[in-house]
Simulated assay, not measured.
Amino acid sequence: MELANIFCVGRNYVNHAKELHNAIPQEPMIFTKPTHAAVWMNGGAIALPGAQGAIHYEGELVLHIGKDYAPGLGADDLVDQMALGIDFTLRDVQDLLKKKGYPWLAAKGFLNSAALTEFIPFPGLSACTEKYFSLKQNGKECQRGRIGAMIFPPDQLLVFCAEHYGLKAGDILFTGTPAGVGPVAAGDRFDLLWDDASLGTCTIELN
């Protein structure tokens, strides 16, 4: 699948913002990743930079935009597929950038920082609200989230992205991570599940 823009939402779950001692945002916090950051969780190894301090995993629900945005359209109109993903973050680098007031690109946009499972048909917001997504690290669940716990729901996120940055077919949106983020180590195996079904796995290599 060829991707266009990769939009990501920061601090979209209250408990995640609190665990990192961040303020609860009053409007969506959007950042982007280069398309070169995308990598598929197809059971193989994913290489991450091992010499820049701590790397954290952030499991997320990912929406794929199926047609160009027009005013009045919501998630059920725009989204045709969904996946799960991991927003890998160089946490020490991010903390330093935040202190200096610099952009997050170096901490969020490095190669292989946007890991993605396979995409599956989007069943609609109502059906998704009844299900959970989860991330397992070495067989143990470390994160669990659902749409209903988001600070800013998908409809609001899509409108915000469209009005501020534009939104078109091929764009994807990482919708934010729930509480439970933590460090990555060489050899870790990650498994992303939608309800009880695994959508993708990977093993971590540190370069």
Rank of each mutant, 00 (worst) to 15 (best):
E2D: 09
E2A: 06
L3I: 14
A4M: 12
N5C: 02
I6C: 09
C8S: 11
V9S: 03
R11F: 06
N12F: 02
N12D: 01
Y13T: 02
Y13R: 05
Y13I: 06
H16S: 11
H16R: 08
H16P: 09
E19R: 04
L20S: 08
H21I: 11
A23L: 11
I24M: 03
F31Q: 03
F31W: 09
T32W: 00
T32A: 12
T32F: 10
T32K: 13
P34S: 04
P34E: 08
P34N: 06
A37E: 08
A38L: 13
M41S: 12
N42G: 13
G43R: 05
G44H: 13
A45R: 04
L48G: 05
P49W: 01
Q52K: 14
H56K: 02
E58Q: 10
E58S: 10
E58G: 05
G59L: 07
H64E: 10
H64Y: 11
K67F: 12
K67R: 15
Y69A: 07
L73H: 07
G74W: 01
A75L: 06
L78F: 07
L78D: 01
L78H: 06
Q81T: 12
M82E: 03
L84K: 00
I86L: 15
Q94K: 12
L96H: 13
L96P: 00
L96M: 13
L97H: 13
L97R: 15
K98T: 11
K99W: 04
K99T: 12
K99I: 09
G101K: 05
G101A: 09
G101V: 11
Y102V: 00
Y102A: 15
P103E: 10
P103I: 09
A107C: 08
F110Y: 07
N112S: 06
S113N: 02
S113Q: 01
A114E: 02
T117K: 01
T117L: 01
T117W: 04
T117G: 04
G124D: 05
G124R: 01
L125V: 15
A127H: 11
C128Q: 11
E130R: 15
E130A: 15
E130H: 13
S134A: 14
L135A: 14
K136T: 14
K136E: 15
K136V: 10
Q137A: 14
N138E: 08
G139W: 09
G139L: 12
G139A: 12
K140H: 13
C142R: 15
Q143D: 07
R144V: 10
R146V: 03
R146N: 14
A149E: 15
A149I: 00
A149P: 07
M150Y: 07
M150W: 06
M150G: 08
I151S: 02
I151G: 08
P153W: 00
P154W: 03
P154A: 08
D155P: 06
D155Q: 04
Q156Y: 00
L157D: 03
L157E: 03
L158P: 12
V159W: 08
V159I: 13
A162H: 12
A162W: 00
A162E: 09
E163K: 15
E163Q: 14
H164W: 00
A169V: 06
G170Y: 05
G170C: 04
I172K: 01
F174Y: 14
A179I: 14
A179N: 11
V181H: 11
A186V: 00
G187Y: 10
G187I: 08
L192I: 01
L192D: 05
L192N: 03
W194G: 04
D196P: 00
C202W: 04
T203S: 08
I204D: 00
I204Y: 03
I204H: 02
